[in-house]
Each structure stands twice: as structure tokens, then as C-alpha cells.
Design a protein around this nucleic acid. Structure first.
Length: 863
RNA sequence: GCCCGGAUGGCGGAACUGGUAGACGCGCCGGACUCAAAAUCCGGUGGUGGUGACACCGUGUGGGUUCGAUUCCCUCUCCGGGCACCA
């Protein structure tokens, strides 16, 4: 064994061994319990970032730990390889997105390998290859048959310069994020997936998912947004009889309606606007809406009367109909009943336009004034001023009103969802082609299965003038599968979230070119442990849950929930440094270019740019990002300290669910620890092979070390296996090494105890620092590879002691320490505690009122 | 506004089921080694008072429950995240 720890050599050797022995190739084995551990696959952006390192190290630690604990582990990796950045890079570099993407994959794969992750590369999949995306297309066609996929013309954000639909997140201050052009609302035909049909089940199932963080379940429930209420009908006669439908969760306030309001996009608004230029102008203004999403909720409520009236469904009274800018066409049916007395928004609206306010709920004796809004006006209570409903409580009133209205067909109970159907069409090139053909005669015709896959041409270079597929004659031209006439291919591609909605199932059988899934899925799926960033809490994880349900209906899988356990790791943060010139943009400097010093008085921290020696400002510790230029390149870290140090630092600096603050000194500390462990092993083995351990012949010090070693093993096992607090597992190992450093090596049994303790340290740390421990395990005299070693059981006998230390409190304050024999009875413990000199001093002349004994821990004397 | 988290030394964090607050690491201080520096090793390190033994104070704020509260309950403040004219 080399005296000096040389991470580059050690890591190359270990990685070569794992490669040569094909250690990470998972084989189905029905006689063994499987463990499918999956980290969210990356977008191949070019280089790994620290977030990837953290994510994949967590998965790797769990995979290696479960493997050593006897599970048949599958830990695959793939590439979420379609998407916008490839098109942007293509435009900038004039290279097809395919080349850029595959170059990035090659580089990032090498990086992942250099970090020593136990990944089964034989199952690697890439979503932009026809071998993968053909099954997207196949599944889409099945969904079309099931009625889960359908076409609809809907309102979208349209960038008039790039000529494409933008996602909501890509619209910044009302302008396209890339072009800066004002975004237009456009009606465009798109394909949708009927996720709303699964809303109830997606919501209900959340209650029974103990392996998911409460936070994520809450976010999904929030997003699905179930509201139970009544769909009301307000009859009218406006160019013919009709009914205005409005949804409410407060049907009990129906008798307090003093107006109705519809959204600007509502048909009745359009109808009223004819011949009313002022109203038409107002409607146009509303449609444009505020530029910024967050302003929506705070913008002033505005409205305009239509001059029309509808009739109250119970009293038949005429109710004025308004157009209101606070009514959303996308929720319910784009209309609300206005009850100013019991709804804050309606109140504000009524005050502004001097509409009557009629209180119909007893607010429980609290003050009611139409002058000012009070939060309790919206609380549930007993009906008043409501004719036949007076005196009824909330639910009774809702039931009675719904029942009365059901006779006149002007009301029925209804559940409304915030969740919308998932529009998957993108006017983008670099995505999975939607397998449809447009024929003049036959309309939209699905591509027949035998013609799949519809191959995306890989040689096109987008130029910013819209989807290049629109100009690709070879792609466009196709014969109609129904009538054979010349037809045109659909040029829209699928949202990339489609690709990631089921890739975890395909890892079971990525080589199958005959079927989307096969029997191997029954063995591996569902995923036992899924690991990824909280930013995917809603979209990716909700779509995947939906998609899995659809695949279950198709008979492809037998379960509804794809991820039994979910772990969301925290972000990686770093300090941000910048200069703000008097004019121009803020300039950010990477922390690697900045040096931290103390000023002359050693009071103040000063950040100085190395290149010019001048001061820069610190913007605090924030998420690592390109825009703030505060990222740390994992490659530089691996090159300088090795993969094990990178892994150890990211696992040690914070609990994995919390944010992790980058610290160069912390990295040094991790490196120092591995070096110390290496040296301890080296010093030990260089003295030759120790004698066999004779546990019966140990002295107190030796037994003490043995106890600590096994206690540490128990803690590491629990911390990794149950608590997932890798930081405390590492801390325990550090504590043990500190104790070993003070442990004298004079007798043969000292060396035997040391051998056992070092083996425990090496084995226990191997999931976290697999390379160094691989080498140290061999150095400790083992022929076998550590990766295949079973996890050592804790020796219960080693944990036993003859006496036990207890603390003594007087009135709850720590006053003394006593040592009592194991199994001592309460009387003995009590006597020992009372006899302690220090304790006696605090008892003094006071009478002892009570003595509380917590066995094995403490004695509290109450005086 | 609603829903989830969180607040502990100079810093990252530990204390798992109500039972020794500050494990472990970083930083800092002192020492050893060295011509010197780095690296390494040893010791110290919550605050206040005291030469010292030791005492008192101390987990965002104020209260409560308890023999005992970082932990449970209530109040407030601040920070982070999600949703948001959702009718």
C-alpha cells in the first residue's frame, strides 16, 4: 500500500475493476429481492453541475448500501435529450441540435464515470433516439384510441418572431424570453391529454403515499385544486332564451347575489359588445391583460355593465350582468355570481361601481358594515335574509338550494378542478414528432402502427424563423394512410415532459424493439427510490403518475404509482460576487476568481478580484446558477481532489434534503479526512498481519474501542438505511477515527482490535467513498472486492458494558455524574445519586420531594 | 390571502421517542516539527464573571404544559418555498 493517498491512481484502479467485472450490470433474478434506485435523468446541457453531483451521489450511496445489504440493485442512467437549449445552441453555432446533443452526452457520460457512480450503462437510453421516441408515438396513438388524447383549439402564448408557442414560464413581462417580442394570445389547434379525467384519483392516492415528502404531496394537491360546489344557472333572454352558468362554492349565499360578471372572453360579453364600442374596447383591454402574472392578483378590479340582465334562479329577480377583469375564462365557466356581502373581490367591485350589498349570512354576532371589508364576512354561518333558507347552516343551505334548483334544472352539485388538460403540442423542431397526418379529404389521420416510428430528421439547423420541419419537403410529404392522396405530416412535436413521463419503466427493457415494455418490468418496477430536485415536485412527477395510470389501463404495468419512495434533495448554494457600475449591467464574478481576506483590523471580510486586486461586492449565498456566475465546476473538483472528496463533501456538509452551502474549506476538510483514514490504514498494515481477535481477552481500553466501532457501525447502518442522514453517518466515522488515533498500539490484541475497527470504518464508508475504500479493503488483507462484500452485522456483545454513566440533575439542572452497574435497581441508583458530593451541595438543607429515574440515562432530584 | 418548511456558537450543522444543548467539520487562538513556509501533529475554542475550583446566562419573541422543553401547545417576528382575483 502506498503511503501517500493518490486519488487519481486509486480511482482509476477501482473504476477499471468495476468496469472489467461488469459489477453494475443488473440481472433479473426472481429469487432475490430487487431494489430499483433511480435518480432523475439529466438534460445533456454540456457539463455536469454540482446539483447533478449531489443528486447522483445520494442515489449511488443508497444503491451501494442496498447492494451490500443483499438487494438486487438496478441503478440506470439516461438522457432527457430533446428540448429547447439544443435548438438555441444550434442557432448560435450553426450545428444541428443532434450533434450538439450527442457531443454533450459523450462528455457528461465520461464525467459520470469519473465520479464512480455504480450505474448500469448497458441500459442507457436517450430520448431523442427513434428507439426510444417511437414508443412515445405508439403510446400517443393508443391514447388517441382510448380518448385520452384529443385535439382542441385553445388559447396559447405565441411568439410572433420565433413563430412558436411559448410555455408560461418562457413569457417574461409579457415578452418572449428569447426574442423580447410582445407575446400574442392565439387560438391554435393542439393535442391534449385528458389528465383531468384522472384528477380525482391523482388527488386521492396522495393520501396513501407515505414514501413521499409531505411537501410534495401538498404541492400536488394544491396544483390539482379540487373545489366542491354548485353549478348555477341564471336564465336570460338575450336574442333568444339561454342560461348563464356560474360555479360557486358558496351556494348558501345565493340570495345575496346583486350582480353577475363574466370574463372578457365570454360569449355573452362578445354579444353585448356589438354596438357598444366602449364595451368592446374594454373587453379588448381585458384580453390583453396585465403583463406580469403576479400583478394579476393585485390589479385593480375593473368592470363595465353590459346593459343586459339575467334572472335570479330562485327569486326570478333581474340581475345586472357585468364584464369583469377579475373573472377568469379558464376557471369554471368564465362567469361568477356576485355576492358583495360575503366575497372580498365582489365587495371591492360593488363598492367601486355602487352596486347593492346584501348580507345573507349571520357573521356570528360580529360587526357588519358595508363600509369596510372584514375577513369574517366570508366565513360560514347561518343564513339570514334568505327566505326559505333562513336559519340553515352552510351545508344544509347548500343541499337545500341545490335540491330546489335541480327541479328547475338551474343548479346541480359540481366539482371543479384547477388542473387543466395537458397540451402537448410544441411548434418546435427538436422533439418527438406527433404521429399524425393531415389529409384534405380525411382530416387528421393517425399514422398506422406499422409506419412507426415517424423519424425526426437530424440534419436540420433552426434559424429562428420557426420550426424548420415546415420547410423540410422530405418530412412533410406523405400519402394519406386512409385514401392514399397526397397529405402533409403534422410538424408539431411533443412536449419534452412526455419523454420523461415513462422513461423509468423503459429502463427495465430498453433493448426491446418489439414492445414498449415486457415482463422484465414486472420484476423491476415500480421504482423503489426516486431521487431528484424539488423543482420537479409538480409537473414531471404529476405527469408521470398520470402516465403510469394510462399504461396500467393499457395493461403494460400492474400498478398506479410509479415511485414508491421519493427523495427531494436540496439545492446547492454558493456566495455570489459582483460589481455594479454606475452605468451598464451588473457584472458577476465566479468565486474561483475571488479571494477572501480580512481587513487590517481583522473585523471585516473583504472580497477581492484576483485579476485586478480591487474589491468586489458580495451578494450573499444563493443557488448556484449561470446567471449569477457562482457555480463550481465539479470537474475541477474531481481533478484536484478526486471523486471521493467531491462525494464526501457533498454528503457531509448538510443533510441531503436541505440546501448545501459550498465551502472550499469544507472540501479541504473532506480531503483531509480521507487522507487521515488512509494514513491510519497504512500505518496499521505496514506493521504486518495482526493476530486473530480474541474478544474474551480484551482490557477495558480495547473493549472501549470495540464498543465504539460497533456502535459506529450501528449508527452508519441506521443513518444510511433508515434516516438518510449521510452527514451524521460520516460524523460518526470521523469520531471513531479520532478515537483510533489516540488508541495505543502496544499489544497484539491492540492491533487485532485496530484491524476490526478499520475494517468497520472502511466498509461503513464504502457507499460514500467507494474508490479509496476499495483500495484500503485490499490493503487490509482481503482478496475479495469490497463492492461485493455483505454489510457487516453489528456484534451485540461488543456493545455491552458492565457499568453505565448516568447524569444527575437537581431541579432539572445538570449537577453531577455517577457510574452504576448495569441492571442496578432504582434504590441503588437513587442512593448513588444522592451520595454524589456535588449533588449534595445543591440539595443543601432542602427536603428531597421527589426523585425521577430514567433508567440508563439520568436521575432528577426535585427539592 | 391560503398551504408547506425553517430560525441553535464566528460559519455549515448535531441532539432520532420530552431527559447531559452545541456531536462532527470549518474558521480562529496557542504549541510542536521546519532556516522558513506549506503540509502534518497536539491542545483550546457558546457568552459573562472569576487567577482558579466554579457560578450564572444561553436554542428567533412572549407565554403555557412538565420534575425536566431546541423538542409539545398558544402568540408574535423574521426568512425560504409552493399556489394565488380559483368564484
Amino acid at each position: 500500500m502506498q503511503e501517500r493517498y493518490d486519488p487519481a491512481a486509486v480511482e482509476a484502479e477501482a473504476q477499471q475493476y468495476w468496469d472489467r467485472e461488469r459489477c453494475f450490470e443488473a440481472k433479473e433474478d426472481s429469487t432475490r429481492a430487487k431494489y430499483y434506485c433511480l435518480s432523475m435523468f439529466p438534460y445533456p446541457s454540456g457539463r455536469l453541475h454540482m446539483g447533478h453531483v449531489r443528486n447522483y451521489t445520494i442515489g449511488d450511496v443508497l444503491s451501494r448500501f442496498m447492494r451490500m445489504n443483499g438487494r438486487n440493485v438496478l441503478q440506470p442512467m439516461g438522457w432527457d435529450a430533446f428540448g429547447l437549449p439544443a435548438e438555441n445552441a444550434a442557432m448560435a453555432n450553426k450545428v444541428p441540435p443532434a450533434k450538439w446533443t450527442f457531443d454533450n452526452i459523450a462528455h457528461m457520460k465520461a464525467q459520470l464515470k469519473s465520479l464512480g457512480f455504480a450505474l448500469d450503462w448497458s441500459r442507457e437510453l436517450t430520448t431523442c433516439t427513434p428507439e426510444y421516441y417511437r414508443w412515445n408515438q405508439w403510446l400517443f396513438l393508443r391514447m388517441l384510441e382510448m380518448g385520452v388524447a384529443y385535439q382542441k383549439t385553445g388559447m396559447v402564448n405565441w411568439d410572433p418572431v420565433d413563430k412558436t408557442v411559448l410555455a408560461n414560464e418562457q413569457v417574461i413581462d409579457g415578452r418572449g424570453w428569447r426574442t423580447g417580442a410582445p407575446v400574442e394570445k392565439r387560438e391554435i389547434p393542439m393535442y391534449y391529454l385528458k389528465i383531468t379525467a384522472y384528477a380525482e384519483d391523482l388527488l386521492d392516492a396522495l393520501k396513501d403515499m407515505p414514501g413521499w415528502p409531505e411537501r410534495v404531496r401538498a404541492m400536488q394537491a394544491n396544483w390539482i385544486g379540487k373545489s366542491v360546489g354548485v353549478r348555477l344557472g341564471f336564465p336570460y333572454d338575450i336574442g333568444g332564451p339561454g342560461v348563464l352558468h356560474a360555479f360557486t362554492t358558496r351556494a348558501d349565499t345565493l340570495m345575496g347575489v346583486t350582480f353577475c360578471a363574466v370574463a372578457a372572453e365570454h360569449p355573452l360579453a362578445a354579444h353585448a359588445a356589438r354596438g357598444q364600442p366602449k364595451l368592446a374596447a374594454f373587453i379588448e383591454e381585458c384580453k390583453r391583460g396585465p403583463a406580469i402574472e403576479s400583478e394579476l392578483a393585485t390589479q385593480e378590479k375593473k368592470g363595465m355593465p353590459t346593459g343586459l340582465t339575467v334572472r335570479h334562479p330562485i327569486s326570478g329577480e333581474a340581475i345586472p350582468l357585468w364584464v369583469g377583469n377579475y373573472v377568469l375564462m379558464s376557471y369554471g365557466e368564465g362567469a361568477v355570481m356576485g355576492v358583495p356581502a360575503h366575497d372580498e373581490r365582489d365587495f371591492e367591485f360593488a363598492k367601486k361601481y355602487h352596486l347593492p350589498i346584501k348580507s345573507v349570512i349571520d357573521v356570528g354576532g360580529r360587526e357588519y358594515s358595508t363600509e369596510e371589508w372584514r375577513p369574517w364576512y366570508a366565513e360560514h354561518g347561518r343564513c339570514i335574509n334568505s327566505g326559505p333558507y333562513d336559519g340553515l347552516e352552510f351545508q344544509a343551505a347548500v343541499d337545500a338550494i341545490a335540491s330546489d334548483l335541480s327541479r328547475s334544472r338551474l343548479g346541480e352539485k359540481q366539482t371543479t378542478w384547477r388542473l387543466r388538460d395537458w397540451g402537448i403540442s410544441r411548434q418546435r423542431y427538436w422533439g418527438c414528432p406527433i404521429p399524425m397526418i393531415h389529409c384534405q379529404a380525411c382530416g387528421a389521420v393517425p399514422v398506422p402502427d406499422e409506419q412507426l416510428p415517424v423519424i425526426l430528421p437530424t440534419n436540420l439547423v433552426p434559424d429562428g424563423s420557426g420550426n424548420p420541419l415546415l420547410k423540410d419537403a422530405a418530412f412533410l410529404a406523405v400519402a394519406c394512410p386512409q385514401c392514399g392522396a397526397d397529405a402533409r405530416r403534422e410538424t408539431d412535436t411533443m412536449d419534452t415532459f412526455v419523454d420523461s413521463s415513462w422513461y423509468f419503466l423503459r429502463f427495465a427493457c430498453p433493448d426491446n424493439d418489439k414492445a414498449v415494455l415486457d415482463s422484465r418490468v414486472q420484476y423491476w418496477a415500480p421504482v423503489d427510490q426516486y431521487i431528484g430536485g424539488i423543482e420537479h415536485a409538480i409537473l414531471h412527477l404529476l405527469y408521470s403518475r398520470f402516465w403510469t395510470r394510462v399504461m396500467r389501463e393499457l395493461g403494460a404495468v400492474a400498478f398506479k404509482e410509479p415511485f414508491a419512495n421519493l427523495f427531494t434533495q436540496g439545492m446547492v448554494l454558493n456566495e455570489v460576487f459582483f460589481r455594479k457600475p454606475d452605468a451598464g449591467r451588473v457584472e458577476y464574478f465566479n468565486p474561483s476568481e475571488v479571494e477572501i481576506r480580512l481587513d487590517e483590523t481583522a473585523q471585516r471580510r473583504i472580497a477581492v478580484l484576483r485579476s485586478d486586486g480591487e474589491e468586489v461586492e458580495s451578494g450573499g449565498v444563493v443557488t448556484m446558477s449561470k446567471s449569477k456566475n457562482n457555480g463550481v465546476d465539479p470537474q475541477a473538483l474531481v481533478d484536484e481532489f478526486g471523486a471521493d472528496t467531491a462525494r464526501l463533501f457533498t454528503m457531509f456538509a448538510a443533510p441531503p434534503e436541505q440546501t448545501l452551502e459550498w465551502s472550499d474549506e469544507g472540501v479541504q476538510g473532506a480531503y483531509r479526512f480521507i487522507k487521515r483514514l488512509w494514513k491510519a490504514v497504512h500505518d496499521h498494515v505496514s506493521q504486518g498481519t495482526p493476530a486473530a481477535l480474541d474478544t474474551a481477552a480484551l482490557n477495558d481500553a480495547q473493549r472501549g474501542i470495540r464498543r465504539q466501532a460497533h456502535h459506529t457501525l450501528a449508527k452508519i447502518t441506521d443513518d444510511i438505511g433508515r434516516r438518510r442522514t449521510f452527514n451524521t453517518a460520516i460524523a460518526a466515522a470521523m469520531e471513531m477515527l479520532n478515537a483510533l488515533a489516540k488508541f495505543p498500539q502496544s499489544s497484539p490484541q491492540d492491533r487485532s482490535v485496530m484491524q476490526e475497527a478499520l475494517e468497520i470504518a472502511v466498509l461503513g464508508l464504502s457507499p460514500i467513498i467507494p474508490h479509496a475504500t476499495h483500495a484500503m479493503w485490499r490493503a487490509l488483507g482481503h482478496e475479495t472486492a469490497l463492492i461485493d462484500e455483505p454489510w457487516t452485522p453489528v456484534d451485540a456483545a461488543a456493545l455491552q458494558t458492565s457499568s453505565i454513566a448516568m447524569v444527575v440533575q437537581v431541579n432539572g439542572k445538570l449537577r453531577g455524574h455517577i457510574s452504576v452497574a448495569v441492571g442496578a435497581d432504582e434504590g441503588t441508583v437513587r442512593a448513588a445519586a444522592l451520595a454524589d458530593l456535588h449533588v449534595q451541595k445543591f440539595i443543601g438543607t432542602s427536603a428531597v420531594r421527589k426523585v425521577i429515574i430514567v433508567p440508563g440515562k439520568l436521575v432528577n432530584i426535585v427539592v
